[in-house]
């Protein structure tokens, strides 16, 4: 299912996302919306790290689940942060509302690309 077309489509979506975020910063000469990119790149990291830290073969006690849940908690935190941060900046008048809209949409596109990339290519890389 994951062939060359998927890679091309995902890279296009990623490029559009970065275009929107950079446009939202550069159009108004105000580079705060770039924080969204950092947030969404940070967002998948806790899951990846905590999946390694937990011990999935220890299924008697389920002690590895706390670490896994902490990773998911942090992921949820970062995803909402990517939406809340531009809204906060726009509400306080630091950036304008069109920049907020563009950076939110661009950030969601970037995050969706990362998520769907890991979903498509997880099996091949893991086993």
């Amino acid at each position: 299912m994951a062939g060359l077309k998927t890679i091309i489509a995902l890279s296009f979506v990623l490029a559009i996302g970065f275009l929107l975020v950079i446009l939202s910063s550069a159009l108004y000469a105000n580079y705060y919306p770039l924080l969204v990119v950092a947030t969404y790149i940070l967002a998948p990291l806790p899951n990846a790290v905590c999946a390694r830290c937990s011990s999935p073969d220890d299924f008697i006690d389920g002690s590895g689940n706390g670490v896994l849940d902490f990773g998911r908690f942090l992921t949820g935190f970062f995803v909402v942060m990517g939406i809340a941060l531009p809204a906060l900046l726009a509400h306080s008048g630091i950036i304008v509302v069109p920049a907020m809209v563009m950076s939110i949409i661009g950030g969601l596109l970037i995050y969706g690309t990362i998520i769907s990339f890991t979903m498509f290519f997880q099996e091949e890389s893991d086993f």
Binding site: D69, R72, F73, L74, T75, G76, F77, F78, V79, V80, M81, A84, L85, A87, L88, L89, H91, S92, I94
Partner: peptide
């Protein structure tokens, strides 16, 4: 549920941060 919990926590934290920055 765990993801929702993280999202709610983030919402609460950023509400007060928004008020502070505002």
């Amino acid at each position: 549920g765990v993801y929702t919990s993280g999202a709610l926590f983030s919402l609460g934290f950023f509400l007060l941060l928004d008020a502070s920055v505002y």
